[in-house]
């Protein structure tokens, strides 16, 4: 069993394939440092998000975009520091799979929103009255 494990380590060190979640330089202190750094940035981004949501310093309509940007940044931080997904050649398959997943997620969310907005518009009464906000009968 230890043979298998050292073989895995060997793959990682020699730039073979890596599994998602594998710390590439599997040393303890380096790993610890990665997680602390990741945590620090994530805390910073979280606080920033909560602050942005309440502040009046930012131009109102831009707040949603700022929040979305912070969220994307934070997801990236989680991927890199906690899930150890990188762009190294040994990570190609992991990243390609992620890219495919992200593509589908985007298609599902934004495709649905786009389609449903248009459908709701078509459902509006012909007089041009706004559709009832409640969506009730």
């Amino acid at each position: 069993m230890t043979d298998h494990h050292s073989e895995d380590i060997a793959h990682r060190v020699e730039g073979g394939d890596v599994a998602p979640g594998d710390v590439i330089h599997g040393e303890f202190t380096a790993g610890w440092r990665t997680y602390v750094l990741g945590l620090a940035i994530a805390i910073g981004l979280t606080i920033a998000s909560f602050w942005v949501a309440q502040t009046h310093l930012i131009y109102g309509p831009a707040i949603d975009m700022a929040l979305a940007t912070l969220a994307v940044a934070q997801m990236g931080i989680h991927l890199i520091f906690f899930l150890h997904i990188t762009t190294g050649p040994d990570n190609t398959n992991n990243v390609l799979a992620l890219a495919f997943g992200i593509l589908v997620v985007f298609l599902v969310i934004f495709g649905s929103i786009w389609i449903m907005i248009h459908m709701n518009q078509s459902m509006m009464p012909p007089t041009g009255m706004p559709a009832p906000q409640s969506g009730g009968m």
């Binding site: 298998h4 895995d8 594998d22």
Partner: peptide
């Protein structure tokens, strides 16, 4: 290796 297969 098995580790990579499982992780992937």
């Amino acid at each position: 290796s098995k580790r990579i297969i499982v992780g992937y």
